[in-house]
Design a binder for these strands. Structure first.
Lengths: 213, 213
DNA sequence: TAGATTGTTAATCGATTAACAATC
DNA sequence: TAGATTGTTAATCGATTAACAATC
């Protein structure tokens, strides 16, 4: 393993896919796989698989391939699956409620520790064992609790104010569902889920297909 | 404009961002912008902006830059914003309901023409002016209606069956919220929104930050 | 042992950035 | 006109793929 090597984002984004396919294989009682067979399953090259994995260590054996359970456990360890960071969700509208339920039903180790909203009709509502708190109390909450990650499911107009709180209170990551880009310092990571953008991209690509015919 | 040039996916995925920033500028009554000023706003290089746009035409003027309204209209035309394809949503659970409401509230031209579910408790329910239909009736619906795109918000175990219907009935694009990869022919485009993967990626990157300190 | 397959180095490919002639 | 800025060609960078020695 190259120790101080920077892992490219392209590689990081493929890790959950490896995790999924290996979990599937294990469930099917397949306990051994070569990079070549895995490449056929995943529709990527065997070269890419071996390159990707070599960023984190040497998990295979010449002439044999990879032990599925062992490799899965290594991927789990790399992704820190069983010991995830905690998060709060800000904005308990359609999307906020849905992802709250989603996370709690998934049991992927992610731990919600608070729900917040601005709307008086929503504040106090119970959801998945939490009461939705007034976003006005968020600064105090952030002071009293270590919050690793924030899921942002709020309208664009409130972004600025919340962004400031995030930076001030040492939040490390943001799952951004709002359709605005966030302006955050480089020590805070952002994963964007921009449904509006995605729909436009899908629409564009569908039109490409239609026009080609 | 290079006419038969294949537009790379990287470029396509940036188009909605251009659209958003230009719309913002227009709303702020800024009617002129150079690639250099736009690059500062968007945190990308001016070179990239000019390269990206040159895939579709010549929209600027030397010594002046770009007319915001004109460029915005061109991007709208490229993305076909005002004349989007229609879609149905399969799986009206947490996520399915949320995106149904989301799409109808966004008014981005996307037109929902049907909602489907397997669950008897959900079938018949009213949502955004639609009644949720039994997924059993989907083959007939697909035969009678031209469905361009499908949003898939169903559990993984039902994927195979629905995938078959999609291929058979000439659907052109899939917005896949399930946490399984779809196996579709190359003339059907897929945009994946894998919340589970995204959370793992965010978690990994947050840990990188934490461990670096 | 012989065949299979890894991990890694080298080659290729594609995307981003830099440079600049053209021209408003 | 002089300065500004485009669109495009060339250079660079980074990611993917190919090749192969090492070895199980």
């Amino acid at each position: 393993m190259k120790n101080n090597k920077v892992i490219s984002l392209a590689v990081i984004r493929r890790l959950p896919r490896y995790y999924r396919y290996l979990k599937d294989l294990l469930e099917k009682d397949i306990n051994r796989i070569s990079s070549s067979d895995l490449s056929a399953l995943m529709n990527i090259t065997a070269s890419q698989i071996r390159q990707d994995l070599s960023n984190f260590g040497s998990f295979g054996q010449q002439g044999y391939g990879y032990n599925v359970e062992y490799l899965l456990n290594e991927i789990k360890r790399i992704l820190n699956i069983d010991n995830s960071n905690n998060l709060i969700i800000i904005g308990i509208g359609n999307i906020g409620s849905a992802i709250t339920k989603y996370i709690n039903n998934q049991k992927n180790g992610m731990k919600i520790i608070g729900l917040f909203d601005k709307n008086k009709d929503v504040i106090g509502k119970g959801l998945e064992g939490f009461f939705v708190q007034d976003v006005e109390t968020l600064p105090l909450f952030l002071k009293k609790n270590k919050v690793d990650m924030v899921a942002l499911t709020i309208p664009s107009k409130n972004i600025k104010e919340i962004t400031r709180l995030i930076v001030e209170h040492d939040v490390k990551g943001v799952w951004n569902f709002s359709s605005h880009d966030l302006d955050l310092p480089p020590n805070i990571v952002v994963e964007n889920v921009n449904l509006s953008d995605d729909l436009m991209i899908l629409n564009f690509r569908v039109n490409q297909i239609i026009n080609k015919v």
